[in-house]
Design a protein around this nucleic acid. Structure first.
Length: 890
RNA sequence: GGGCGAUUAGCUCAGUUGGUAGAGCGCAUCGUUUACACCGAUGAUGUCGGCGGUUCGAGCCCGUCAUCGCCCACCA
């Protein structure tokens, strides 16, 4: 027989138990073919990543759900996998190459990709190992990768298929327009990947001379003067009197010496600046639109790496865009064309990853997905409740974005990613197909002969494949048994910052390709910030490493700390202090187990929680039922903090602080039958606690389950596969509850009086309880042993000389030379209940008054009257309950 | 410029249909009673951001203001 160690040491058990779980096959989906499936797809972490505390939270919550539903008998699939993370991964490997004095350009595409795959094989598993340390019960046999190309993992095929179909449906198309461009990586990025950062800059007011009257000027203002090299017009508002005469005339663009027209366009705001605005369609999104309206050809004056190109005057060619800005300003100054310079703060688009590179609107040809029709379906699915957000308010954010969605630029000028399945001939014909063979066949069918084809070098936005994740991981486009069984998935657990990037796009793609929502519920959890409330980031250096915390306190402590702090959708501050607190909770549970062990509290066969004789035991069973119901309802409602909190409260403040203290005198007493029943009850309740706690603290509970399983009747070998408690058949004993609450109150009050009166702990005093009701007197007698022990009394008896309803205790009068007198108000409870009855009475009277007012009844809408009647009935019912409770007190 | 969230004990935060304000940490006093000092007992501390309103009754509902934070937005 195993004896429990004095303290719980997570390091000794976590690794072993995780291996046992895996070996038992408990993580695998499909174990219970007759059970209802329950599916969660993991938000795939980046291969480049390592587990940060946000992942720890995200995966803890998913694991709680997975383990909970598994115990409730569902066939659980928690689908794991990783994301290829296009840009991040490419950058990581490029940086490595840089250290070795080489580059991807030198290696060539094929060799470079080989190196990335090698890197993935080496480093990609880190995060999975970390998830295992956390206790994540994913079905690892089904591990997937967004660029998977193996027999089992055909993620890439799904991506090709989707692209080809979208193209065939006319939703995927190429277009040349302005796109957010990263001049450092030389790739397009989508609108979502742009972060507008407020920075200090200047607003230069520049004078443009009229072409036919060089002495007259029209002033425009800009924060980016170098773009004037690409100006193709000046716009003024059509109703602006100041400029009406100038519309149709031209200005001579300084530095470039080109003539550009003055056009009338609503875009020009007469209130702003001079009312005239320079138009640069090649380098500004608004100007692009203005240019289109006036048939102005966009003029791009930048190279793809952000230098001035040869469309600009020779003096500026080859200059970096920021150097060009200085040069332009200097030259304008020299010419006396700067009217004034105002310092301003304005939002400048930066790349969202590094937040350092200033993005440039750039005219390039890219692939676009027309998401508008997909968005309509995605909106409807949330509007009609097929998918619901928890908390609900996030649905608004989702609506807002989808309602105003623009075409999604899906091509990236990178190497690492899904290469776009489009081939071109030398005439510029496009053939989109799942393979080169198919593309050739298409070309031959169209042109009547074999032609040389070259594949589009670009790759897809990483989020494109992520958008397919819920169904591509299950084998789509094949109608696999897994897809039929586990799709749609049940709940997506994620954070608010990727609602647009990921959630909305999964909804769109899921509905478009499977006609079903990808998940019924989207649970948005908190963001983890550091102890000072700052967002954690590598650059800030304030990242808390969950593994360090696991090493120090154990995985269960970290998990519990995260769960109990995880009120939906709010920032969550996390540091080692909190984890330490819940390490202490683990220790508490461990010690409760040791108490049971030392006192022979062993489970017995045929234990019947409904047929207990002792009030004490009936009471704790009732409390357990209450806790179980609370925890269950809270998890079902994704109120993880309430679930963990309810469990904590029951284990610590009810089971340990009261019940175990209560039973000490019973276990040592001479009523052997009661002692035996109590040992069995203590063991049974503890066993149930292990079940309730398991989703939150899988390791310690599993270990205690193993040890306590060595004695008593046989039960499930592993807790992970044991059933969740179901107490539908257990009736809670309200009388036992009232009785034990009275005992608890009595003990607390005596302790309180003792402390206030500074009675030494060693002094055992006699207690006389005066004015007790008949049942109170009985309770005092029945629980005399434990009252004496816990309140440190010599005797506890009743007296009868005070009025009922104002019960008093008189403690040790004359015994220690002090007269201790404290009022215990059992009357307090009566007063409260009485007050509530009175409230109900007054409420009923108020409603009656209204209802007897004939004028009101005849004029008010039927619903209002009906509502009042219902309310009255409710108050009647509440009143009856209160009276019953009052009666119980007597 | 729009939208959302937050404001509760010294700190970090709970508070789900409106009914006498809670937890953890911290603090104070006491305690080595055979599970646990990673513990137990007892206690102190709150005009629930301000001001109005609805209600018999508001931390919770309505209006308004203030401060902080986040998201979205094409402003020269």
């Amino acid at each position: 027989m195993t004896m429990l160690e004095k303290t719980y040491n997570p390091k000794d058990v976590e690794e072993r138990l995780y291996r046992d779980w895996e070996a038992s096959g408990a993580f695998r989906a499909g174990n219970k073919p007759d059970a209802k499936p329950f599916t969660i797809v993991i938000p795939p972490p980046n291969v480049t990543g390592s587990l940060h505390i946000g992942h720890a939270l995200n995966n803890t919550l998913q694991d709680i759900l997975a383990r909970f539903e598994r115990m409730r008998g569902r066939d659980v699939l928690w689908q794991p996998g990783m994301d290829h993370a296009g840009i991040s991964t490419q950058l990581v490997v490029e940086r490595q190459l840089e250290e070795r004095q080489t580059s991807r350009q030198k290696l060539g595409r094929e060799e470079f990709l080989k190196r990335v795959w090698e890197w993935k094989a080496e480093s990609g598993g880190t995060i999975l190992r970390q998830l295992k340390r956390l206790g994540a019960s994913c079905d690892w046999s089904r591990d997937r990768f967004t660029m998977g190309e193996t027999e089992a993992d055909q993620m890439s095929r799904a991506v090709l298929k989707v692209f080809v179909e979208l193209y065939a449906q006319g939703l995927m198309y190429k277009d040349t327009r302005l796109v957010n461009w990263d001049p450092r990586l030389q790739t397009a990025v989508s609108d979502l990947e742009v972060e507008n950062i407020e920075i200090k800059g200047n607003l230069w007011h520049i004078k443009y001379p009229l072409a036919d009257d060089p002495e007259r000027f029209i002033t425009v203002a800009t924060t980016r003067p170098e773009t004037m090299l690409g100006d193709t017009a000046v716009a003024v508002h059509p109703d602006d009197e100041r400029y009406r005469a100038l519309v149709g005339r031209q200005v001579r663009l300084p530095l470039s010496d080109r003539l550009v027209p003055i056009v009338a366009d609503d875009y020009a705001d007469p209130e702003k600046g001079s009312g005239a605005v320079k138009i640069t369609p090649g380098h500004d999104f608004n100007d692009y639109e203005v240019g289109r309206r006036h048939k102005l050809e966009p003029l791009s004056i930048l190279t793809l790496d952000g230098k001035i190109n040869d469309k600009a005057p020779a003096a500026y060619r080859g200059l970096d865009r920021f150097d060009a800005r200085k040069r332009v300003v200097a030259d304008l100054e020299a010419l006396g064309l700067i009217e004034k310079v105002e310092p301003v703060t304005h939002a400048v688009p930066h790349d969202e990853k590094t937040k350092t590179v200033v993005l440039e609107p750039m005219l390039t040809e890219q692939w676009y997905l027309n998401v508008k029709p997909l968005a309509e379906k995605a909106l409807d699915a949330v509007r009609d409740g097929r998918t619901k957000f928890v908390p609900e308010r996030f649905a608004d954010e989702y609506y807002r974005w989808l309602e105003d969605i623009r075409p999604w630029c899906v091509s990236r000028q990178l190497w690492w990613g899904h290469q776009i399945p489009a081939w071109y001939d030398d005439k510029g014909n496009i053939f989109v197909a799942e393979s080169e063979v198919d593309a050739r066949a298409q070309a031959k069918a169209k042109l009547g002969r074999d032609v040389a084809l070259t594949r589009d070098p670009d790759v897809l936005d990483t989020w494109f494949s992520s958008a397919l994740w819920p169904f591509s991981t299950l084998g789509w486009p094949e109608q696999t048994p897994e897809l039929k069984r586990y799709y749609p998935t049940d709940v997506l657990v994620t954070m608010f910052d990727i609602i647009f990037f990921w959630v909305a796009r999964m909804m769109m793609m899921g509905l478009h390709f499977t006609k079903q929502v990808p998940f019924h519920t989207v649970y948005i959890h908190a963001r983890v910030v550091d102890e000072r409330g700052q967002k954690m980031s590598k650059t800030r250096g304030n990242v808390t490493d969950p593994l360090t915390l696991i090493d120090e306190f154990g995985a269960d402590a970290l998990r519990f700390a995260l769960a109990i702090a995880a009120a939906a959708g709010k920032d969550l501050r996390m540091g080692r202090g909190r984890v330490e607190t819940y390490r202490n909770f683990c220790t508490k549970i461990w010690n409760a187990a040791r108490f049971c062990e030392m006192n022979g509290c062993v489970r017995v066969a045929g234990f019947e929680p409904s047929k207990l004789k002792s009030t004490l035991n009936r009471w704790i069973v009732g409390e357990l039922v209450r806790a179980r119901n609370e925890v269950t309802a809270a998890i079902e409602g994704y109120r993880f903090n309430d679930a963990a909190g309810g469990l904590y409260e029951f284990v610590w403040n009810v089971y340990c602080d009261w019940y175990l203290e209560f039973i000490k005198p019973v276990l040592g007493g001479n009523d052997e039958a009661q002692a035996a029943e109590t040992r069995a009850t203590a063991a049974w309740v503890f066993d149930e606690v292990l079940r309730l706690a398991h989703p939150f603290m899988p390791f310690i509970t599993e270990e205690l389950w193993r040890v306590t399983g060595e004695q008593g009747p046989k039960r499930e070998a592993m807790l992970i596969s044991a059933p969740w408690p179901d107490y539908a058949k257990i009736a809670r004993d309200a009388a036992a509850e009232t009785e034990m609450n009275w005992v608890k109150t009595l003990i607390s009050e005596v302790r309180s009086v003792r402390a206030e009166m500074n009675v030494p702990p060693a002094s055992k005093l006699p207690l006389q309880l005066k004015g007790a009701s008949a049942s109170e007197a009985e309770w005092l007698k029945r629980h005399n042993d434990l009252i004496l022990r816990l309140a440190r009394l010599e005797t506890a008896t009743t007296g009868k000389d005070l009025a009922k309803g104002s019960a008093q205790i008189v403690v040790g009068q004359g015994t220690v030379g002090l007269a201790l007198e404290g009022v215990i108000d059992f009357a307090k409870e009566r007063a409260r209940l009485t007050k509530d009855v009175q409230k109900a009475d007054s409420e009923i009277a108020r409603i009656d008054a209204k209802l007897s007012n004939k004028d009101f009844v005849s004029r008010a809408p039927e619903e209002v009257v009906q509502e009042l009647r219902e309310k009255r009935a409710e108050y009647e019912a509440a009143r009856a309950k209160l009276l019953e409770a009052l009666k119980r007190l007597d």
